[in-house]
Nucleic acid binder design. Structure first.
Lengths: 153, 153
DNA sequence: CCCTGTTGGTTTCATATGCAACCATCGCCC
DNA sequence: GGGCGATGGTTGCATATGAAACCAACAGGG
């Protein structure tokens, strides 16, 4: 990449990738959160847990934590709330007494059957201005940035 | 864009743009925050205020709020903290007694002279795997997503 | 000129968050 | 098989956050 003027002059936040990315992600996240929260009273963390359980059938809190990089406590609280609402079920794992296996209940599955199409439709509207190639490339570039980030940490 | 299978089956968070974007932005933001916080004891909000003042010389809190879409209270608190540390100066605007004009102090300018090159260098490392064209296209695509978002809201 | 509705900014409050301490269990080495 | 460090998960705490209440100061129509 270009390593142009490294001085402090003419620095523009609008062209600073971390800022732009964060800004965009925040706005998208907020807009979607309104969907989850106002219509189904779910926090983003709760939605993520549900979505992962939908995808992988049975998981432990640890696996969700690894997949999402959410805080330990955040996952724990999301799981508690979801169980209290009867959307997921947890039972002690036969393999390890510390661990609890998480699964969707029927109610959870039913909620996702509503929620996922909504989320998909919303995403489709969002990315409507992009061509298929652009969309694919965006995901690809993001993947590379993530890998680079892992290298830097 | 493709409007494929809208059902709830085979939904994969890893391919869901809002999730991916948020995840990436979070990680980048956290990594950068470590830079600001550990080395200069600045919150992200404070850094943003400084950066905008660097860019635009004199601003009011309202203008910063508009530019960054940060919460009113967040801007207010960041400004207070920065003034307490002597990095910015605020004085009542001659035009409107409610408003205060914000400016960098010498100390603030000096801090930015350190901080900006660091931030730039970090960004350069982050985007090292991207070609110039890819980088440009990324910013372009992000801009289009932002515009689309504005339309959806 | 008031009176009223609006706006910039601060403060308060209830909630969300992350870190760290904690508890129980596990795996392992002696 | 009994310690002992590591690990999954929960909880307590201190901080950060956003929404809403609040306070001045403005604008402009009567």
């Amino acid at each position: 990449m270009c390593a142009d003027d490294a001085s402090a002059s003419n620095f523009d936040l609008e062209r600073f990738l971390p800022y732009r990315l964060n800004h965009l992600a925040d706005r998208i996240s907020q807009a979607l959160a309104r969907l989850y929260e106002t219509r189904h009273d779910l926090s983003v963390a709760q939605w993520r847990v549900l979505a992962w359980l939908h995808h992988r059938e049975e998981l432990t809190a640890k696996e969700i934590r690894d997949a999402t990089r959410m805080d330990k406590a955040k996952v724990s609280r999301a799981v508690q709330a979801l169980e209290a609402r009867g959307l997921i079920r947890r039972r002690p794992s036969p393999r390890d007494q510390r661990v609890q296996d998480l699964r969707l209940t029927e109610a959870g599955r039913a909620l996702l059957a509503e929620l996922i199409p909504e989320a998909r439709a919303w995403e489709a509207e969002l990315v409507a201005p992009l061509s298929v190639a652009e969309y694919r490339e965006l995901l690809d570039v993001m993947g590379r940035l993530e890998r680079q980030l892992a290298r830097l940490e």
